[in-house]
């Protein structure tokens, strides 16, 4: 099921959350809306779901205008940031809810509902928690219940709002890989919101980078990473900028090479302000003559060879830099 967003604008009072957004999401893909907080990504997701009404513009599902459709009729699965599990219901009752509230003629039999719930709980690998209440579950388990509940109604699209936001780092990683595999299995068009670039790049087929209510770039993860469309995307995906060399250069911290001496290659000098050891890599913060700070990332071996200390001067050569036309 494809989703088409046509010139959607949304204001909250004086604050403009979305400015004339156009986006088409092809069917069966896993798409991430990536951006800092306040970029409008959650608002866009809620508008797709029908939980928020756009001030202008339209939403099309499979070419059909759904703007006037209520959230109830849109047949979207929505996974809320804090899961919004029904706290007075067991896991089973939560997942069965969407099946039970269907009009009688569309409703499955009791045993049909039961089978379907168990099938879903097996799919999300928590069938052993069926009689538990939400408060008895861990964050990761709640997330899976929320997903199973959303999938139970066989949604045309699956929408996830910061699906891993409330989880700790290890569970996040596990769960996002699992989500990727799950998507490969069920292939329902999915859109998820995240502020974590690593998450977006790792999991999704298409990344939509948003900022201040606008879309900055749409593309495959490699595309967006290797060919950022503008300084914002570059910066948001972990790039640094170096001004006046002679033009501004945009590079990634690991693409800067350091040496004790200038070897005739164009670059700049900087004083090592701080050194952070971070697993297999070392992060350095350089201060240039003009006061600009530049992050550099080198591997442990080169760091050892350079024998750098804080306060020492070093020559840096940005490689692979990009130039953006404004």
């Amino acid at each position: 099921m494809s989703i088409e967003i046509r010139s959607v604008t949304k204001n909250f009072g004086k604050h403009c959350a979305l400015k004339n957004i156009d986006l088409s999401i092809p069917g069966g893909e896993l798409v991430s809306l990536l951006g800092p907080s306040g970029s409008g990504k959650t608002t866009l997701l809620r508008i797709i779901a029908g939980l928020e009404a756009p001030d202008s513009g339209s939403i099309l599902f499979h070419g059909e205008d759904a703007t006037k459709q209520s959230a109830r009729d849109r047949k979207v699965g929505f996974v809320f940031q804090n899961y919004a599990l029904f706290r007075h219901m067991t896991v089973f009752e939560n997942v069965a809810f969407g099946l039970k509230v269907k009009p009688r003629r569309d409703r499955l039999s009791k045993s049909g509902i039961r089978d379907k719930v168990f099938q879903l709980l097996k799919l999300v690998q928590i069938d052993w928690l069926v009689d538990h209440y939400p408060f008895q579950l861990s964050g990761g388990q709640r997330q899976r219940v929320a997903l199973a509940r959303a999938l139970a109604v066989e949604p045309r699209v699956l929408l996830l709002d910061e699906p891993f936001g409330a989880l700790d780092a290890k569970v996040r990683k596990e769960l996002r890989r699992w989500l990727r595999r799950l998507h490969d299995e069920i292939h329902v068009t999915s859109v998820f919101v995240t502020h974590d670039q690593e998450e977006a790049l790792e999991v999704s087929d298409i990344v939509v980078v948003m900022n201040e209510g606008q879309i900055e770039q749409v593309g495959a993860p490699d595309d967006v990473y290797d060919h950022p469309a503008n300084p914002f995307v570059h910066g948001f995906l972990g790039g640094v900028s170096i001004h006046g060399l002679p033009a501004s250069a945009y590079v990634r911290p690991h693409e800067i090479e350091l040496s004790r001496k200038r070897n005739g290659v164009p670059g700049f000098y900087g004083v090592v302000k701080y050194i952070f050891r971070k697993g297999t890599t070392v992060h350095l913060e350089l201060e240039r003559d003009n006061g600009e700070c530049v992050d550099v990332e080198i591997d442990r071996d080169s760091f050892r060879d350079l024998e750098l200390k804080e306060g020492e001067k070093v020559h840096a050569v940005p490689g692979n830099s990009r130039v953006f036309s404004n």
Binding site: G50, L51, E52, A53, D55, S56, S70, A71, R72
Partner: peptide
């Protein structure tokens, strides 16, 4: 576009 005294809500 909706016009009304209350803000849009799905409820």
């Amino acid at each position: 576009m909706r016009v009304g005294i209350k803000k849009f809500s799905v409820l």
